[in-house]
Nucleic acid binder design. Structure first.
Lengths: 194, 194, 194, 194
DNA sequence: CATGAATGAGAGTTCATTCAT
DNA sequence: GATGAATGAACTCTCATTCAT
């Protein structure tokens, strides 16, 4: 596959993302993507075999980007609280972006392929999130920024809240205010009592 | 509709519940239900027009039952902490029950019919949950059982965590230990500092 | 499936037979049969899943009919030569009927599903033919009608010749005269030398 | 067409032969051949327009080779029986060679293009075979090697048996023993009675 | 000459939905 | 009420064939 087709592949992925963002996963057919891309039926099959494959590829791209964004913004002199704030801000952005969000598609995908595999992507991302937060909280405790008796529980708690808000945003809608309140609540929970 | 048809309607709903519990929502076709019920294709249409309608009906039944269960177990002399514990226990049971759970089907349904309608069922249930918890926490504060500076935030927090665990249970799997740890963490967060 | 659908099933088989007779096996699609039957796409699938299944069913019907025809015409007082003549006459009829013959379709089918399974239908029919002929020839020898030093070889020989003529008829065409000459040749080979 | 393209054409034919030998005719697509040859789709079309054309070309090559082989091995002093034996041995070899045999593909081809054209290749080859055998038998009779009252019938008989065994080999499988028995039976039928 | 991306026709298959009985 | 045969739309996937490079 030459240079040209790499671009087309990217074009298809970009277009498919919009389709998934709009319709979720199960409602999307290869035909939908073909039409959105305005290419031929067979043309799509040159690049992808199924909506599964397309969505998975999008997820992998997304995961990489997320990692880059997060690690890219941390500088040496940031405090634990700074980083946590940054992390939560990033999550907030993701939560509120309705347009172009794969959230629903991803949930649907993992519903359809219901496997509680230890290495499934959502599982890995969740566990990674917990680990990062735990480290962060411990660092904050060490530096006197945070107070917390159960860093691991707190980390898991934050991840569950974020997950809960994510799904709530998609099924019920969520306002910036609601998110801010929760994030504030979380930060308060870690704050050193005066 | 005669007595007989009421029974048949119930039979269909019961059978359909098993199908939805097993396959989620989008993967279930009218044909699936016809086959599971072992009735005729046309027969099903006499009672229901679509899988949508069937699932919605199941949800309404479920909502009623849940209310009954919850309110039915509260007695006058229970303390706020008792009631909260009871509530969380109930949630835990729901979280861990894999078999026969409509959770995934419900999520899928509301993904497919994505409307952030203020009166959508999940929204109403969530809001009701927050209200109940808020009252409970406030009662607990009043009685000296709890300490909390932001009862509403805490209530929302608990609901988000429950929601997060619910979805995590379905996509990644969750163990009783993980649930217990979180519930303990939540209770600790409300505990009066000694 | 009620009385009505049995008739329709038969109608489809009858129609499909004509299609197979005309086009062979691999050239026939479910669509071809749908169109020949003038029924709906889905309608055909109510009765048959594939062209394979339809052809096989036709073959089984054919096999039964053949057996009936053959055994039905033998009376007690027939001599071995009479029966052999009858058998060859039957074969001749089959050979010459171009219209409505499944021969090519059957060959194609067994080419496509090339398995030299001992229990494949052509194999069983061939072996059965050899056995019958062998018995017949031995009976003829016993009654003084035939002379033959290797009844089994002769039986196999006849079957191969018939097979050869069958395929020759389909690929090259064959005239009644050619068939008659061969059958005469065969009978002569068994005739008692005067 | 330059030297180079002649070689490539040959390469394609050689490769296609293997594909046809393995899959028959109708199951082979231009794509199959492209992939087997590991050339580009367009590349194949520079040399051949269809699988039909490729198979036909292979057949013509084969026909030439066969002629060469047969006529090449006959020497002046061979007796009729020697030549017949040689001929049958050659046929036997062809019958038993499963690998690399175009037999099925050829049958399929002529089934698909069913024309009982007098000049079709199988027809011509069959007729030529009959003629050669007839001559041979007559020569054998003249030399006192054979006894036969109907040389033409015998010749046709042999060709039909060979054809029958060929197809039987492909659809049902055939063992060397079975072939030998038939060939022995044929030779015996021509033997001078002592 | 050679490539391989692109097209679009067409086959297979499934189901929601209707309707005569 | 109940049945289940029938329909047709929609989707998946594969290839023969073309054509710009």
């Amino acid at each position: 596959m030459g240079e040209k087709s790499v671009q087309k592949r990217k074009y298809i992925l970009d277009t498919a993302r919009k389709v998934f963002a709009e319709k979720g996963f199960k409602n999307v057919t290869m035909k939908d993507i073909v039409e959105a891309c305005d290419i031929s039926r067979g043309g799509l099959y040159l690049y992808f075999d199924s909506t599964d494959q397309i969505l998975l590829e999008l997820l992998h791209m997304e995961a990489e980007e997320t990692d880059d964004v997060f690690t890219g913004h941390i500088s040496e002199e940031d405090t634990a609280a700074d980083i946590l704030t940054l992390f939560l801000k990033e999550q907030k952005k993701e939560l509120l972006q309705k347009q172009d969000s794969l959230t629903v598609a991803v949930y649907e995908y993992f519903f359809v392929h219901r496997s509680t595999d230890k290495n499934s992507m959502p599982r890995k991302q969740f566990d990674a999130g917990v680990r990062v937060l735990e480290k962060l909280i411990e660092a904050g405790i060490a530096s006197g920024e945070f107070y917390c008796e159960d860093p691991k529980g707190a980390a898991a708690n934050i991840m569950y809240v974020l997950e809960g808000m994510k799904i709530h945003a998609q099924t019920c809608g969520i306002t910036e205010k609601m998110v801010d309140e929760q994030l504030y609540y979380i930060m308060q929970g870690l704050a050193v009592d005066v």
